[in-house]
Every structure is written in structure tokens, then in C-alpha cells.
Amino acid sequence: MEKQSNIYVAGHRGLVGSAILSKLHTDGYTNLLTRTSSELDLRMQEEVNDFFEKERPEVIFLAAAKVGGILANTMYPGDFLYDNLMIQSNVIDAARRYGVKKLLFLGSTCIYPKFAPQPLKESYLLTGDLEPTNEPYALAKIAGIKLCTAYNNQYGTNFMSVMPTNLYGPNDNFDLETSHVLPSLMRKIHEAKVQDEPTITILGTGSPLRDFLHVDDLAAACVYLMERYAAEEIGEFVNIGTGNEITIKALAEKLCEVIGYEGQLVFDSTKPDGTPRKLTDVSKLTSLGWSYGISFEEGLQDTYAWYIQNEVKK
């Protein structure tokens, strides 16, 4: 990946894509391609083909996806499966046909079985049943990994896949219906503080364990891998995370500290928890020479400051 390479960041306005775009700018990459979803619908093969024919990207960061938390996945399972299958299949296949030199496909650690041994090693893929609340999204991401691997084997392409843990940071989605747990809790706790509410109800028991990674660290890892490694050197895919974990209850308590909310947290155990534990094994990533740099406390402060400036004040 050269500084003058024609680099396409798919999904550049989302949490992950925006962080990757910013990292590339900071690192001196000057020829960056972007398109909004209204300009280019990646679910439409003809539109994707036209874009590749005209722009001829050499390197691709495939961060475009339909994403959401447990509620959104439960409400729209068909959309999560179809949209993600179409987005990734169209881009990966066009990359193969138009001779893209290198592609990075971003998935998620939700690809692992619900009751996989902990921490989650790359070898645990397809060793058990998936978590039902995000199965459609997970199936799509598994298909994306396998498509990259199949094309590498059949056509000699250089398409690598990375599986980030739970992400957070600037440009996250704070919609209470479709967001993931951390931004959803941040918004709920902030609004409870502003409205002086004595209690907050949190869905689930608060017991699930999660590994949270700041999106700027993810962007740094993605650029690091693309600059230094070929797909065959990292294997089928590599996890990206911190290797640390925290319960949802402890996360909520930390957010209360950051936000300054002093009310009571009430957990609704009648609502689903999702996967009980999801700790990422990052030994493979560490062996490739990368580890995270942003502490959880620093990351939460940074994200809350962004939320106040961009969501509350807009």
C-alpha cells in the first residue's frame, strides 16, 4: 500500500470507516476514494461495477455494513442478512474482477459460537451454534470471510479479513433502537442526568462480559496490517481487540462516573442478554506486532466529549 495508491474506503461515514479514513489522512495517504450510500448503493451490483470501472481502486477497506445491537438485529433479521451479503459480495467480487491489489474485509467477533471457549481464538469459527439474537449478521460476516479465502485460493487475490471486538468512539450510532450497548447506555445515562431521573432501567441482567476497543485503535490496527502483511501471512482472519473484559453492569457504572449521573441502575432480567461472554484472544495479532494504545477510561471520556459536541448540541 503506497502513499499514492488509489484507496477506496467503503462506509466512510460510519464508526469504523470514518476512523480508517482519518487515520489514512493522518498517515499521508492522499488519493482516497469515498462515496455516500445515496451516491453508491453497494447492494446494487450494477452500481458497484460502474464505480469500479470508472475509479479503478487499487486498495479497499471494506467497512460498509448494516450494523446494530440486539434490538435492531431482532427486529430486522432479514435486512441484516440480505444487506450485508449483498454489500460485501458485490464489493469483493468487483475487487477480484477489476484487479484490486489488496482488500481488507471487516467483520465482527459475533461470528463465534455462543458458547465457544474463552478467550475466543480464530480456530473456534464454525465449531458451534451462533447466538440467535445476531445470527443473521454473523452468518453474513462468516460468508464474507469465506468468500475472501475462496478468492485468494482460486484467483490468487490478496484479500484479508479482520474481526474486531465490540467497538466504540466518535461517529458511533446513538439511536436507542438500533445502537450497540455502549453508545445506547451512554445516551440513556446522559438523558437521565439531564432530566434528573432517579433510576435507569437497563435491558438484561448486566452480567455479560465484553471486550471494548476504541475505534481509533481499530483503524490503527487495520492500516498497520495492510501496510505490512499479505493475506496469506495472517491466515484466514485475525481478531482485533484488547484482550480485556468488563461486565455490562460495570460498564454502566463507569459511564455513570464519566457522565456524572448519581441515580440508581435497575436491570430488567426479562430481556435477553445476548452472548454471555465474548473475550477476544489477541495473541495472533500481538505476534504480528500490534497492540491497543487507548485506555478504556480515556476512550470513554473521548467518546462522551464527542457525543456532547456532535449529538447533544447539534
Rank of each mutant, 00 (worst) to 15 (best):
D50V: 08
F51V: 07
F51L: 10
F51A: 05
F51Q: 06
F51S: 03
F51Y: 09
F52P: 12
E53A: 14
E53S: 07
E53G: 03
K54T: 15
K54L: 10
E55M: 11
E55D: 12
E55Y: 11
R56H: 10
R56K: 14
R56D: 12
P57Y: 01
P57W: 01
E58W: 04
E58D: 13
E58F: 05
V59D: 01
F61P: 04
F61I: 15
L62K: 05
L62G: 00
A63N: 05
A63S: 12
A63Q: 05
A63L: 05
A64P: 08
A64N: 12
A64D: 02
A65Y: 00
K66V: 09
V67N: 02
V67P: 00
V67T: 11
G68E: 00
G68P: 00
G69M: 08
G69N: 04
G69Y: 01
I70R: 01
I70S: 04
I70M: 15
L71I: 10
A72I: 08
A72P: 00
A72H: 08
A72Y: 10
N73D: 06
N73W: 03
N73V: 01
T74S: 13
M75H: 14
M75P: 02
Y76Q: 03
Y76T: 09
Y76D: 03
P77H: 09
P77W: 13
P77D: 10
G78W: 09
G78K: 13
G78D: 15
D79S: 12
F80V: 04
F80S: 02
L81A: 11
L81Q: 08
Y82N: 14
Y82K: 14
Y82L: 14
Y82C: 06
Y82F: 11
Y82P: 01
Y82W: 08
D83P: 01
D83L: 06
D83M: 03
N84H: 04
N84A: 09
L85S: 12
M86T: 09
M86C: 13
Q88F: 11
Q88L: 15
Q88A: 09
Q88C: 11
Q88Y: 08
Q88I: 04
S89A: 14
S89G: 06
S89Q: 09
N90M: 03
N90R: 12
V91N: 02
V91M: 07
I92N: 03
I92A: 12
I92M: 13
D93M: 07
D93F: 06
A94S: 11
A95K: 05
A95W: 04
A95P: 08
R96W: 06
R96F: 01
R96P: 00
R96H: 03
R97S: 11
R97V: 04
R97I: 07
R97L: 15
Y98I: 10
Y98P: 07
G99S: 13
G99I: 06
V100T: 13
V100D: 00
V100W: 02
V100L: 03
V100S: 05
K101P: 01
